[in-house]
Design a protein around this nucleic acid. Structure first.
Length: 449
RNA sequence: GGCCCUAUCGUCUAGUGGUUAGGACAGCAGCUUUUCAAGCUGUUAACUCGGGUUCGAUUCCCGAUAGGGUCACCA
């Protein structure tokens, strides 16, 4: 069978996680079966639809790495809807009903209603099995606001029929829409596509994921520095377990493993912590050059906001450290913004009383710092690197007590009670800066004593 | 409220008519060349309840309960 699926977002809001999930699942299914994907902007609601939203949806889906083969807007297909409407009325399967407007009381309108045969409808859901509804409860529901103004259900059925859609894969909020669409479909004589209704993602309190319960705009994840691969991967895996049970998968691998029947039946809570973990996995895979490019851009801008001048050499040297400390790019902005990395670029302002560290006095600290200063001073600049620094003082530190020697050294270099180790810092800032900072700490100790 | 869907650790899940109910995230503990981070190792933690069927149910059936969805001149 020639598989044809659709992405039918309604452009009444920015691209959110639910939109992305709809697109991902349809994409995986279509690609798995070599099918065609139709992007159909469901803009029948003229009041709420905006071109701005449509553009955002397109932009974010592309950012996630998705694509489609054909593009339409529902409103541009209105002629076929009108034809269908006219045919239904001519065949007396629908009728024009003159009634009072629900939106504007007192105003008479002419809506079109379907003559509902009121029978039981059973359809097979690829994820849930047979589902039966008694459509009598629906009554003669409205299918158009007016003879030339179709409503969603009519438009969807006609468009799906005309476009030869074979599989309708959508969220479970559409389960109860399915019987009425089937009714319209049968009245029009279109074949019934296969249906698959996947569960919705839930917010932390298990309620529907929405603007109220959390951040859902794809753009906001993008702005916080989540990687598209990570977001795509997490959204896909949340509610689907591939046969291999692997969690970290590329788009290609997902396509290979995808089976619509493997989608879960129950809704899952969207866990930002796990998303962060996924993002870290992908950040760790980033090539060194592109990682450094992004990191440097962020560091430069955040440091300049703090009036600290950028040092290219130091920046390059702390890359491994940056990569080890962040899960999302936003973390780097926060780190720098809070001054956590200031000491790599500017001299710190250590607190004299904190220099010795726990259980040691100023005299001891001065003695150790002077010793280390002397050792460091003798290291040729050409041999100035992390390993060399560590080797040069390690035995001394071990004999004298590592905490007693290393704490003052580290604190003198960073001015932070918590920071990376002194060797890494020392190598990054260079010999001159190290000696100056030790000297500064020593004078602080002396002036205090 | 009617109708529909769903139900395993805090979260995402695997799984079977008989299992020590497995994994991931988070948590906790220990280790790793001082602190922090990372890493490594270990570890806490679950079958919603009540009836059936059965020698035996987490698993099959029914009911209850809970959660979700939907009942538009929105999509």
């Amino acid at each position: 069978m020639n598989v044809r699926v659709r992405f039918p977002p309604s452009p009444t809001g920015f691209c959110h996680v639910g939109t992305a999930r709809m697109a991902i699942l349809n994409y995986l299914f279509a690609k798995k079966h070599g099918g065609t994907i139709i992007f159909r902007s469901e803009d029948t609601d003229k009041v709420r639809s905006k071109r701005e939203y449509e553009e955002d949806i397109i932009e974010q889906l592309k950012w996630l790495g998705l694509s489609w083969d054909e593009f339409y807007r529902t409103t541009e297909l209105v002629e076929s809807h009108k034809e269908a409407l006219a045919r239904l009325i001519a065949e007396d399967k629908a009728y024009v009903s003159k009634e009072e407007s629900k939106k504007e009381p007192g105003v008479r309108v002419e809506v079109v209603r379907l003559r509902n045969p009121g029978k039981k409808i059973t359809f097979t859901d690829l994820i849930r099995g047979d589902i039966t509804f008694d459509t009598a409860e629906l009554g003669d529901f409205t299918i158009a606001r007016a003879i030339d103004d179709p409503l969603y259900h009519l438009a969807v059925v006609v468009d799906d029929g005309e476009m030869g859609i074979t599989h309708v894969i959508r969220g479970e909020d559409h389960i109860s829409n399915t019987p009425r669409q089937i009714l319209i479909q049968e009245a029009l004589g279109y074949p019934r596509p296969e249906y698959a209704h996947y569960p919705l993602h839930l917010g932390t309190d298990k309620s529907k994921l929405s603007k109220r319960t959390g951040d859902v705009a794809v753009k906001s994840y993008r702005e916080r520095g989540f990687l598209p691969e990570a977001l795509l991967n997490y959204i896909a895996i949340l509610g689907w377990t591939p046969p291999s049970a692997r969690e970290v998968l590329s788009l290609r691998e997902m396509i290979e493993e995808f089976e619509i029947g493997d989608l879960h039946k129950s809704g899952a809570v969207f866990d930002i912590e796990k998303l962060r973990w996924f993002n870290r996995q992908y950040l760790l895979k980033e090539p060194e050059s592109s990682f450094a490019h992004e990191a440097i851009t962020i560091m430069k801008s955040e440091l300049s906001a703090r009036s600290i001048s950028w040092d290219e050499a130091a920046g390059e040297r702390i890359m491994p450290l940056v990569r080890e400390r962040i899960s999302v790019w936003q973390d780097l902005r926060t780190l720098i913004g809070e001054g956590e990395f200031d000491f790599f670029f500017a001299a710190p302002a250590p607190e004299p009383s904190t220099i010795p560290g726990k259980g040691n006095d100023a005299g001891t600290a001065r003695k150790h710092l002077q010793h280390v200063q002397k050792i460091f001073d003798e290291i040729p600049s050409a041999e100035w690197n992390e390993t060399r620094l560590k080797d040069s003082v390690w035995d001394y530190a071990t004999n004298e007590g590592r905490a007693a020697v290393l704490w003052p050294l580290r604190y003198a270099l960073t001015g932070k009670e918590r920071s990376p180790d002194p060797f890494l810092v020392g190598a990054a800032i260079g010999k001159d800066a190290v000696l100056k900072r030790i000297e500064a700490a020593l004078s602080l100790l002396t002036s205090k004593a």
